[in-house]
Simulated assay, not measured.
Amino acid sequence: MTPTFSICVYCGSRTGERPEFSAAAQGVGRWIGERGGQLVYGGGRTGLMGTVAEATRLSGGRVVGIIPKALVDKELANPLCDELHVVDTMHERKAMMGERADAFVALPGGIGTFEELFEIWTWRQLGYHDKPVGILDTGGYYAGLLDFLAHSVREGFMGEWQMGLIRAGKDVEPLLASLMEEAGRHPRGDMLAEVL
């Protein structure tokens, strides 16, 4: 199957404390799979990563996992991926994820999720790509971060235009639909290979 679109999902290798986090990951996977799309993600089968991958697969979507050698055992590399790429470094992982996606969305997660979100947002600011970036604020998980980002704008360390490069939403359907609508307005080519 040739996917109609490709979304990179950043999310936790843990499930978190609230059931709505797993429900959101399932919802994202179903949304991708039911529309004939492709999930690009970190390649693990634990936590929300495993949840979104399995929901995508069971809904008919294609799953591409990209995982560094150092995490193959820790995050339990997912053998059910349509493609599973084992790379040498985190840098390679993130660059390949960026190249394979039309859009990016962060679900609840920890420091790795934050780092991936901020890096892909920075790459967009620098012009390495012009693909949409979203934050799924499930249960207000990212409310404090979004407040802090607004504070950073008020304090003069960021501009409103930088905030305009990301979309945040609380519900799966409208957020993903808006990201894919925006992705359709941008050319597929990008300069992410230059980041290597």
Rank of each mutant, 00 (worst) to 15 (best):
D82R: 02
S59V: 09
T89Y: 14
V172Q: 08
L80Q: 12
L175S: 07
L39K: 00
D130N: 15
M49D: 11
H151F: 15
R30F: 03
L175I: 10
L196Y: 12
M180G: 07
I67W: 08
F21C: 00
F118A: 05
T122N: 12
S152A: 15
L179D: 05
L145N: 09
E160K: 12
L196W: 12
F157A: 07
I120G: 06
I7D: 00
R93M: 07
T51A: 09
T138D: 01
A77S: 06
G139L: 06
D190T: 12
L176I: 14
W161G: 14
R154N: 14
F118S: 07
P19V: 11
D102H: 09
D130R: 14
T4I: 03
L71I: 08
P68S: 14
G140R: 06
D171H: 13
F5D: 06
G12H: 05
F118R: 04
E17F: 04
V195P: 09
T2D: 09
L145M: 15
A103I: 03
G61C: 07
D190S: 15
I135E: 00
H151M: 12
R167K: 14
G144N: 13
L117M: 13
I32E: 00
W123D: 13
I32Q: 00
E173F: 05
G98R: 04
F114N: 10
E160D: 13
A25V: 05
R93A: 11
M49C: 06
A183K: 14
L149D: 02
F118K: 02
G98M: 04
G164F: 09
V133S: 03
E54Q: 15
L179V: 11
S178H: 10
H151V: 12
P187Y: 09
R30W: 03
L145F: 10
Y141S: 05
V9H: 01
L107S: 02
P108A: 03
L165C: 07
A53M: 07
L165H: 07
T51Q: 07
L149I: 11
Q26V: 11
I135W: 00
P79Y: 08
F21S: 00
Y10A: 00
A53N: 06
Q38R: 11
E83W: 01
S13Y: 06
L117C: 04
W161L: 13
P132R: 00
P3T: 01
P187H: 11
R154Q: 15
